[in-house]
Design a protein around this nucleic acid. Structure first.
Lengths: 159, 159
DNA sequence: AATGATTACTTGATGTGTCAAGTAATCCTC
DNA sequence: GAGGATTACTTGACACATCAAGTAATCATT
């Protein structure tokens, strides 16, 4: 995968991964691949939401007036504006979110969680949290949770 | 998101996340969301491959005869057989892998890395490893790398 | 050796994400 | 206050993933 191999190209001073890094990397890739599918599967099955849709609703629910600008919402959900735009349109069609122009800035659009969206979120939350706990936190000691928190933070600041 | 709220439904004995877990979870979700897009962006730009396509080629390259059954390849790449089937068909159309029926089991299909696929992989590897190093491992201490490895392993065994 | 169950895929339809391009409002500078 | 540049989105085309269903070979049982 990313193991050492003899370099042929001139000037290829690549710092390959050592054995420990390679093992860690393969495991991280697996985690990064599998976590979304586990979350998506449970939420779709039980609540008819993707994990990203859940995140969008959850972010709106945590905020005054349950309202955020698209850009702010994109930032909080780590998504591109394009992706968010498509998802919010679909959520609006389903009545879970409402879009309206921002009064302070004519370029901007606000997204607001509707009452129905709040209900859907409230009903989805227990099952989702249970899945998160069972598939992640029940596997980790409290020390590992805090280590994970710092590791993830370090990576995020790099990206 | 997954914060505590008063439970209304009867029998809802959900174990909500505490503050530390919530922070760790939000960071992990961000990492899990962002890592694939970082890897995909670099590989697509520089090598015309998705990260998953790279993984498929890499797994084949590590194996005797550069050949694996679809099921084994799906397992190694943490993918569903359906997803793999589509991807391998596209890779075959591009001449990077070859498919042929497995002699030992008439139901099974073998996928083999072609010479051209090996070349594409060899050319893609340095840039990919550099991206992995810069966006992940350069941010972590050696202790964090080994902690990450164990944390990921613990999660994987749960999933 | 026939039948049903299982395994190993493949295929087609649908949904979601990404990229490139477009629109429209605001900012900025002269 | 008239330009161009930037910001904040939206849209449409295409690529990729997922789901349900289908096919075909093998295994397991009688």
């Amino acid at each position: 995968m990313t193991s050492q191999r003899t370099s042929t190209a001139p000037g290829s001073d690549v710092r390959w991964l050592d054995a420990d890094e390679l093992v860690a990397w393969k495991r991280l890739v697996a985690v990064v691949e599998l976590i979304p599918s586990v979350l998506d599967a449970q939420l779709r099955r039980d609540s008819g939401l993707t994990h990203f849709e859940y995140l969008v609703l959850a972010m709106l629910s945590e905020v005054p007036d349950r309202t955020l600008r698209m850009t702010a919402l994109a930032h909080r959900t780590n998504a591109t504006l394009t992706r968010l735009s498509h998802v919010v349109r679909r959520l609006e069609e389903r009545g879970l979110v409402l879009r309206f122009p921002c009064p302070e800035d004519g370029r901007a659009t606000n997204a607001r969680l509707t009452d129905e969206g709040g209900c859907v979120l409230t009903e989805a939350a227990p099952g989702h949290v249970t899945t998160v706990r069972e598939s992640i936190f029940d596997a980790l000691t409290p020390e590992q949770v805090s280590e994970l928190s710092e590791i993830a933070d370090a990576i995020l600041r790099r990206i």
